[in-house]
């Protein structure tokens, strides 16, 4: 394999990793606050793909992007309000089952509405423009993804670190009960969390599907699970950790596919998960916590 090919694959990997990182943040934020693996997050990402297809059919691309972002965000908040909020006091297993139920519903609903046949993802011309640097060639979206990811993460970190809402989010994720007693509006904070997570998933969805050309009702399942792994890998609840995890998994997966082990690339992700959980359950940057007897 020549140097150029390797670099080319790395570029693809970084781009894929960027999209993964954006989705992984959604997992990490929700887990941080509700201690819930939002199994429906991957399907929100998939739905965002369909929203884009339909809005781009009747609107110019800037409007279509805006519509996709807004609709996905609203959907994320609605899912939490309808399916998770009533179960907040219930055992953890119930809320996880509810998340699986939502995932199941979204998949079946989209199969019904859009059929299981892959739908072509529309091309946004400026995103697909090809750049050449030496022997390397890349579409604009490939370069844009990692840069946009970094910018969004910096903005998000600033929001969480500097604003009052951000402080409330940190408080809730440290100690849900105490934060409630301190008068923090838990429902608002949870909604904000889901809004941010879904918004980033929508951005990730646009970047991811532009490179992949088609959407099916099941396109969200595997990327969703992989991004959860990315979040665990980086240390769940930790945003930079999720980003590092996303990039790492994206790059390794692309390289494995390039080496001809495409069927094992999914297996690798989960193997990474199991090994990570056994060696350092708190992830790369996670904090250690001692369970009280």
């Amino acid at each position: 394999m020549s140097m150029t090919t390797i670099l080319q694959h790395c570029l693809t990997g970084i781009s894929l990793g960027g999209a993964y990182a954006l989705i992984a943040i959604g997992y990490t934020l929700v887990y941080g606050i509700l201690r819930l693996i939002n199994f429906a997050h991957g399907d929100i990402f998939m739905m965002a793909g369909y929203f884009m297809i339909f809005s781009l059919a009747s609107f110019p691309w800037p409007a279509a992007i805006l519509i996709t972002l807004v609709v996905t965000t609203v959907m994320g908040i609605a899912i939490e309000r309808i399916a998770y909020k009533p179960l907040r006091e219930a055992p953890r297993m119930s809320i996880m089952i509810s998340a699986i139920g939502v995932s199941y519903l979204l998949q079946n609903l989209s199969t019904y509405l859009f059929t299981a046949i892959p739908r072509g993802y529309p091309e946004i011309p400026f995103l697909k423009r090809i750049f050449r640097v030496g022997d390397l060639s890349a579409s604009f979206v490939t370069v844009l993804t990692p840069l946009l990811t970094i910018v969004l993460v910096v903005i998000l970190m600033t929001l969480i670190g500097r604003t009052k809402t951000g402080m409330a989010m940190r408080a809730v994720s440290k100690d849900f009960e105490t934060a409630k007693l301190m008068g923090i509006n838990i429902n608002a904070i949870v909604s904000v969390t889901f809004a941010i997570g879904s918004f980033l998933a929508a951005v990730g969805s646009i970047l991811y599907f532009t490179d992949r050309m088609s959407v099916t009702p099941f396109s969200g399942t595997l990327p969703g699970l992989k991004c959860f792994v990315a979040a665990v890998f980086g240390g769940i609840g930790n945003i930079p950790g999720a980003v590092v995890g996303g990039f790492f998994i994206g790059i390794v997966e692309t390289l494995l596919v390039a080496l001809g082990y495409s069927t094992f690339s999914d297996a690798f992700t989960f193997l990474l998960l199991i090994v990570m959980l056994l060696v350092k359950p708190t992830g790369l940057f996670g904090e250690k916590s001692v369970e009280k007897v």
Binding site: R35, L36, I37, R92, M93, M96, L225, F228, V229, V232, T269, F270, L271, L273, I274, L277, P281
Partner: peptide, 11 residues
Amino acid sequence: SDYLAIATLGL
């Protein structure tokens, strides 16, 4: 609990 769920799913 939930880590076990995701690890077995991965398995």
